[in-house]
C-alpha cells in the first residue's frame, strides 16, 4: 500500500494556504499599533477620548478674576450653584476675556427654568413660583440679585 494524496487535495491545500497567508499578512499590516495594549481596543483611543477641548471652564477658573462674586454668592442660597449653570459655557471667556463675553441671562422664563412651580420638585429643595401670579410684568432681577437672591433691591 502506498500513501496516496489525491491531486485535488494538494491543489486545494495550496489555494487555502495562499489565502490564509495573505489574510495573516494583511492582518499584520491593518491592525492598529496600539490595539490590545490594555484590552480589546485601540489603546490610543484613550488619548483620543481625553483630547476634546473643554467648553465649561469650571468655577475655580471664574473665581480667579471674579473674587467679588464668589464672596457675594457665598452669603446666600445660590452659594452652591456654579457660575456656568446660569452663565453658560465660559472657557472661551476665560481664554479671551476681552472679546468673548459671557452670557448674562435675565427674564422670568430663565429664572423660571428652575423656580417654576412643578409637582415633581421637592418643596425643601427649591423655592417655587407660579409665574402667572408672582409680580406679573416684572423681571426677577428687578427685585432679586441673582448672586444674592434675598438681598432684595427694593
Amino acid at each position: 500500500m502506498k500513501f496516496y494524496i489525491p491531486p485535488q487535495i494538494t491543489r486545494l491545500a495550496l489555494a487555502f494556504a495562499i489565502f490564509i497567508t495573505l489574510f495573516l499578512v494583511l492582518r499584520h499590516f491593518l491592525v492598529p499599533k496600539t490595539f490590545g495594549e490594555y484590552g480589546h481596543y485601540r489603546g490610543a483611543s484613550l488619548i483620543d477620548n481625553a483630547q476634546p477641548e473643554i467648553h465649561y471652564a469650571g468655577q475655580q477658573a471664574c473665581f480667579k478674576c471674579h473674587q467679588d462674586i464668589e464672596d457675594k454668592k457665598a452669603q446666600d442660597v445660590h452659594s452652591e450653584i456654579h457660575c456656568e449653570t446660569c452663565h453658560g459655557p465660559g472657557e472661551k471667556h476665560v481664554v479671551l476675556s476681552k472679546t468673548e463675553k459671557i452670557l448674562k441671562p435675565a427674564g422670568r422664563e430663565f429664572c423660571g427654568s428652575c423656580h417654576v412651580i412643578n409637582a415633581g420638585k421637592q418643596k425643601s429643595m427649591i423655592n417655587q413660583i407660579d409665574l402667572n401670579k408672582h409680580n406679573i410684568g416684572k423681571n426677577c432681577i428687578e427685585c432679586h440679585n441673582p448672586h444674592q437672591p434675598w438681598e432684595m433691591k427694593k
Binding site: P6, P7, Q8, I9, R11, L12, A15
Partner: peptide, 15 residues
Amino acid sequence: TLGVNDISPRTIHWD
C-alpha cells in the same frame, strides 16, 4: 478547475 485536470476513475472517485 484550478489546473486539476486528472479525470482518471480514481481521481473522480475521490471527487
